[in-house]
């Protein structure tokens, strides 16, 4: 009996020691040398592994950050400037601060604005729907409403509004990782600067149809009339393929374009006050009148509206 116990203990001990030795040898032999800073950087990362930075995950980002000579090509949109500062501190590098961004849905084709022309009965996936046809409305560019962006969002920041059938971004939760923009087959979601206190102005339409066709498909479409371009005093709006686009880098949030837009395609959000369209229109009219008077005083010929394109041609020539 006793000998059995003793033998058991001896054999188990020897076996344990042997295995420990083998493990030790294997660990030594196959050890991968890694920069310890990768672990450190990874620790300060948000850990969402969303891929918004363009790398496969936070670990891959950290790995690339440690190897890179500077941090110009790397930015974690989820962690923002705070995390990037920490990363820079660990690596002893400089970081370029970026303005915080947010996902913006550039379609206002609610059920009310954009009447349905047919019924879609297929798979509830925008990608599948877009591959089949132009969609269940007259607009071939707008939101398809199947919520690929919702399922792409890891942060629960997008939800479909059942009333409008359009996705709504929760600005608190949105990290601007860009997953929704990539998931959208119609490319209606754009990452835009959040703006001071969240205030921003954007064109909520990407319809490239000509004015009448766009208007027929959707009451809130951008019809490419160009009034906003003429109104803007900051040169922030361009008109391309019958759609206006506001450059958020140049926009000064004066909201004049929003007031002038005939279809309401331009949206200003998070402004403390409601836009008084009539007042802004009056202000613009006043300014234009003054400008005309000034121009008339300087050069009477230029008053005629027809002279304008002529003048442009001269300039070009």
């Amino acid at each position: 009996m006793t000998s059995t116990v003793i033998w058991t203990i001896v054999i188990l001990t020897v076996l344990g020691l042997l295995l420990a030795l083998i493990l030790f040898w294997v660990a030594r032999k196959f050890k991968v040398e890694e920069d310890p800073r990768i672990d450190e950087v990874e620790k300060v990362m948000p850990g969402a592994n969303c891929g918004g930075c363009g790398f496969a995950g936070c670990r891959a980002f950290a790995d690339a950050a440690v190897k890179a000579p500077n941090l110009d090509a790397q930015y974690c949109p989820v962690g923002g400037n705070d995390v990037m500062k920490k990363v820079a501190a660990i690596l002893g590098l400089e970081v370029k601060e970026k303005a915080p961004q947010v996902a913006v849905v550039r379609c206002n084709g609610s059920c009310e604005n954009r009447p349905r022309t047919n019924v879609y009965d297929g798979v509830a996936s925008c990608r599948v729907k877009a591959a089949l046809y132009s969609g269940d409305t007259g607009c071939a560019f707008g939101c398809l409403g199947c919520g690929d962006c919702v399922s792409a969002c890891q942060f629960g920041a997008i939800s479909m509004d059942p009333a409008t059938g359009l996705p709504v971004v929760d600005e608190e939760k949105c990290t601007a990782c860009g997953a929704c923009a990539k998931a959208c087959p119609k490319h209606i979601i754009e990452l835009r600067n959040k703006g001071p206190r969240g205030m921003r102005v954007y064109v909520s339409c990407v319809n490239k149809d000509k004015g009448p066709a766009a208007r027929k498909a959707c009451a809130a479409a951008c019809i490419g009339c160009g009034i906003c371009v003429k109104t803007c005093t900051h040169d922030a709006i361009v008109l391309e393929d019958n759609v206006a686009y506001i450059d958020y880098g140049k926009c000064r949030l004066c909201r004049e374009c929003e007031a002038m837009c005939p279809t309401g395609a331009i949206h200003g959000v998070n402004f403390p006050k409601e836009l008084d369209k009539d007042a802004v229109k009056a202000r613009i009219a006043e300014r234009q009148k003054k400008a005309r008077e000034a121009a008339a005083a300087a050069e009477p010929v230029a008053v005629k509206p027809a002279a304008e394109p002529l003048k442009k041609e001269e300039n070009n020539g």
């Binding site: 297929g122 798979v123 996936s125 990608r127 599948v128 591959a131």
Partner: peptide
């Protein structure tokens, strides 16, 4: 199951 719809995407 919408097999064709998904496989068409996969094929693409």
């Amino acid at each position: 199951i919408p097999l064709l719809d998904n496989i068409r995407q996969a094929k693409g």
